[in-house]
Amino acid sequence: MTGSEREKMGAGAWYRCLDPELDELRARARRAIHQHNILPPDERGGLAPALRALFADVAADVFVEAPFHCSYGLNIRLGDRVYLNAGCTILDSAPVVIGSDTMLGPGVQIYCAEHHKDPALRREGLEIARPVTIGENVWIGGGAIILAGVTIGDGAIVGAGAVVTRDVAPGATVVGNPARVVGGT
């Protein structure tokens, strides 16, 4: 595929993350994150203005505890009443959609990028990004890791510390590494 590395990333194609345009987008995100993480809670509210402006879409009643981290921010969409506890990280090189009334425990990590398996290409920064979609009314326990390309259905529960490598059906409960179903609706 031809085009800029940002265009390739957005199209879900292999791209080089070591790119001046992507570097600047990550720097912009770091500035917004810094503002969010250092503002006193009564001044920050649910989400610092710079971080709110960075995200692709965010409802008015979202609450993101500090500290928080993301790669770009511009690929993050948060529905109504989404709550992200302290220490959450979203590496959003692809779209990340989190549905209304979903809660993430402390230290939850969402990773969209997959680095190339060939070490020489990995050294060059070659990676591919796949979206993560989390439905409505989902609870993700502290320290869980959600990997690239995963969809978590409405009403699902992800246990603390789980590593989610595959889609989770609506209403299912998953635990462990790799996450496996232990209950459902």
Rank of each mutant, 00 (worst) to 15 (best):
G149T: 02
V62D: 03
D101S: 00
R122Y: 13
G79S: 11
V158W: 08
A169K: 12
Y111A: 09
G155V: 00
V64Q: 04
L121E: 15
C112P: 06
A156S: 09
P67I: 00
L104K: 05
T89D: 14
D118Q: 13
G135Q: 13
G155R: 04
L147P: 00
V163C: 10
R81H: 09
P119D: 10
A160D: 01
F68L: 04
H69S: 12
E65I: 00
Y111T: 10
A120D: 09
V62M: 07
V163A: 05
A129E: 09
G99A: 05
D167K: 05
I76N: 12
C112I: 07
T133Y: 04
K117Q: 08
S93V: 10
A169Y: 05
F63T: 14
T165C: 06
V138T: 00
V132D: 05
A148H: 14
P95L: 00
N137Q: 15
Y111N: 06
Y111K: 03
V164L: 08
A160C: 07
V138Y: 03
G79C: 14
G87T: 03
A148P: 02
G107D: 06
P170C: 00
G87C: 11
G87D: 09
T151M: 01
A169S: 11
A113S: 14
G73H: 09
Y111Q: 13
F63W: 15
V163I: 14
K117D: 12
A169N: 02
V64H: 04
G161D: 08
V150C: 05
Q109I: 12
G161V: 08
R166N: 11
E114M: 12
D118Y: 13
V97D: 15
L104Y: 09
G135N: 13
H115N: 08
G149H: 06
H69F: 14
V163E: 10
R81V: 02
G149M: 04
A66K: 04
I152E: 10
M103G: 11
E136Q: 15
L147D: 01
A144G: 06
P119V: 00
G153H: 10
V150H: 04
G73S: 12
Y111M: 12
P67L: 00
V96I: 14
V62W: 06
T133Q: 07
A129S: 15
S71Q: 12
G143K: 09
I98W: 06
D154W: 09
T133P: 09
V168R: 01
G135L: 11
V97S: 15
A144F: 04
I128M: 13
A94L: 10
V163K: 10
L121G: 03
L121V: 01
D154I: 10
E114V: 14
V96P: 06
G159W: 02
E124Y: 05
D61K: 00
V64K: 03
R122W: 11
W139P: 01
